[in-house]
Design a protein around this nucleic acid. Structure first.
Length: 226
DNA sequence: CCAGACGTTGTT
DNA sequence: GTCTGG
DNA sequence: CCAGACGTTGTT
DNA sequence: GTCTGG
């Protein structure tokens, strides 16, 4: 699963890696991105190219009466995303990249949760496969764009910690994932478990457990921990 | 026809 | 235990 | 994902 | 929005 992640790159780095139409403004490195926060999302816009947006993490279905339904829809299983009522419209035409450098997974019981960071060893940008949705407040004028991260079975590296992990797209996959004309049948190969030679994993400080705590040290290895 | 429900993941 | 908020 | 809050009645 | 149940 993926319920917390890092995006450590600066704006210029992201601009070039994702071939964006313009550099992200007001962006600074993050080490504890949490659900319900505004998170970066990259969409393909016709006639414009790849554009950087901020959306709420936790997908709010268009028919929801309240936003809090999205608090738990932070992930979508790739195996069932095409069938689930909350996701099946978004997967067809509202796919997006969710930029990151890595993600956290936990092992252990409540009160004794040991976090691990899993990510790009050189802290280069990676992309999670995402989908997004637009929600209108039935009462007011409020419009919220929200997103969720697809998951797949863990690979060999992650398996000892957790049995699920985010769907990670490599640059060769970006075009297909963002192509609104792509057929749904073309996507499942992207959900296949695979090993990545640049992916690393190590235990980190439990400081990351508290959403809202930030700092470079959260994603650094802590010797002595298991 | 209208009204009412619809959701996910993960963990145990 | 369960829900909410970040 | 994890952390933190959650609650009522009746009696003093 | 879309499906199910009455």
């Amino acid at each position: 699963m993926c319920g917390r992640y890092t995006l450590e790159n600066e704006s210029g780095d992201l601009f070039s890696h994702f071939d964006l139409d313009e550099p992200p403004t007001h962006w600074q490195a993050r080490y504890n991105v949490a659900p319900t926060q505004q998170v970066p999302v990259i969409c393909s816009v016709e006639g414009v190219g790849r554009h950087w947006y901020l959306m709420r993490w936790g997908l709010i279905p268009a028919w929801a009466k309240e936003t809090r339904i999205g608090n738990r829809l932070i992930n979508a299983r790739s195996e069932s995303v095409a069938e689930k009522p909350a996701f099946r419209t978004a997967i067809q035409r509202r796919r997006c990249l969710i930029p990151a450098t890595g993600f956290y997974e936990w092992r252990g019981q409540r009160g004794h949760k040991q976090p691990y960071w899993i990510g790009h060893q050189a802290r280069r940008p990676i992309a999670f496969a995402g989908i997004w949705e637009k929600w209108r407040d039935p009462n007011g004028e409020q419009v919220i764009q929200s997103c969720t991260i697809l998951t797949k079975p863990a690979n060999q590296l992650v398996q000892p910690i957790h049995d699920r992990m985010p769907v990670i797209l490599t640059p060769d996959d970006y075009g297909l994932w963002l192509d609104k004309m792509a057929l749904l049948e073309a996507l499942p190969p992207l959900y296949t478990p695979q090993e990545y030679d640049w992916l690393t994993l190590y235990p980190v400080s439990a400081d990351v457990n508290s959403p809202g705590v930030e700092g470079r040290h959260l994603a650094e290895p802590v010797p002595g921990l298991v």
